[in-house]
Design a protein around this nucleic acid. Structure first.
Lengths: 249, 249
DNA sequence: CGAGCCCTTGAAACTCGTCAATGATCGTGG
DNA sequence: CCACGATCATTGACGAGTTTCAAGGGCTCG
């Protein structure tokens, strides 16, 4: 648990130094651990939003269900991701969150939001954090809107790979990606059938392997080029990630 | 100008009462007026982000250009919209903003962000505001991903109509929408040719008229049903828009 | 009066979705 | 221990929605 909070703090400090009390606010706010199985909803649409939480294991996703029963996945929540720290600001959530694999989360105490409000640095860091996720959402719109199925899948895997690498979950050019082909299809607005075919095409082209929930990318650069992936939108670089002038202020 | 700030304050107060000093912080932060002609960039990708501003007249959009020259519009900025109040938090912007019609904006003074940081209520209101725009972005993803061209265009017009109505720019079931068919195409990830054809289909079906930058919706409810539009994601209702528990805290 | 932008229309090509059926794997209970 | 249902991956054939290419016309503005 300490490892997770340390990592989370490091991640938030990417956007500006946090004081010791700020760091304590995070550490002391961790209340309980909850576990979910695949397809379990962590939060349902229409729920009164409640606590913030941190994903510690597994993949989850934000999604909306359409009247015809189809599902659009709106974004992935990976280990280390902080969920809805400001979520409690809006009355009703307009989408749901569910587990894609078995998932473990750390639920933050309800005082957390008050402590955040009291700290300028913490508020600022969480706003930055939210901005990054908004940037990811924008990139997904571009992905779904303007890329071929081949590029879309490649791009999604580039994003996952890069985000997992940032939290130390990539080894030997490989990482665990517990997504079904249907999950990928719903993320990219493709049919599962077409994802299957395109996945084989990607494998044949040698750009990636994806089997048994294991993603292997031999030559990341080659895949990135083929998929039009540019990691700027993930705002991962420490130091470059924040506007120096804003930090100074 | 006072009308605009009054409206902006009212809009932010949707998310919680603002004190008199908070309101003054907004009023006194307005620095200069700038004007842009269509296709002018207000902010370019890669720019060091700078000031916040308010659109007072015209339509602008966030967009990304793809390597092949195609453009994906990521969201519309309508009169009354506040732009990037937290924008200066991230070092480099990952997208551009340009004028779609002739546009007039009020640029906020650079102290604005400092004054926001000092006020808990203002920070909170701006976070809510950002959350609403994120919700709109999510709905766009659903729109592009899972709806037919007929529904997509209908949905976009429903959103524009509803947002303009909220700022008093709808009269006699009509409003000015200075978008070209190409703008619509780039917003919805369709070709301009197909937008043209679908627009005629919409007109023939009697659901809407769109000619000479003028949008007319006789029976909004009928269009909303046909397009699968549900305005929840715009979080417009005053009072219902915020979580009472969070307000209390 | 010409240039540029926008709207309109037609025909052909293609990507991708739908429908349908088969296998593979796995956990559960009989 | 095996049968069963469930979930997921795979494959083929067909059809539909959209894109692309191409060309023409209307409008505005310099």
């Amino acid at each position: 648990v300490t490892g997770i909070t340390a990592r989370l703090i490091a991640r938030l400090e990417q956007f500006g130094k946090l004081s010791v009390p700020d760091q304590q606010a995070i550490e002391e706010s961790i209340a309980i651990v909850r576990r979910f199985i695949p397809r379990d909803d962590l939060v349902k649409e229409g729920d009164l939003v409640d606590r913030a939480y941190v994903i510690t294991q597994g993949f989850a996703c934000r999604y909306k269900l359409l009247p015809d029963g189809r599902r659009q996945i709106l974004g992935l929540l990976l280990p280390g991701d902080l969920c809805d720290p400001r979520g409690l600001l809006l009355a009703r959530r307009d989408h749901s969150i569910s587990a894609l694999s078995s998932v473990e989360v750390l639920v933050m105490a309800s005082e957390f939001s008050e402590r955040v409000a009291r700290s300028v640095a913490l508020s600022r860091a969480l706003s930055c954090y939210a901005l990054v996720h908004e940037a990811i959402l924008r990139e997904w719109l571009v992905n779904v809107g303007h890329r071929t199925s081949f590029e879309r899948i490649g791009h999604l895997f580039c994003e996952i790979y890069t985000r997992l690498r940032a939290v130390g979950l990539v080894a030997n050019n490989a990482c665990e990606v517990p997504l079904t082909q249907l999950d990928i299809a719903d993320s990219l607005a493709l049919s599962a059938v077409h994802v299957n075919r395109t996945l084989m095409e990607l494998r044949r082209s040698g750009l990636l392997m994806f089997q048994n929930k294991e993603l292997l990318i031999e030559d990341f650069y080659a895949l990135a080029v083929a998929a039009g992936f540019d990691d700027t939108y993930l705002h991962l670089e420490r130091g470059i990630a924040t506007n120096p002038e804003a930090v100074a202020s």
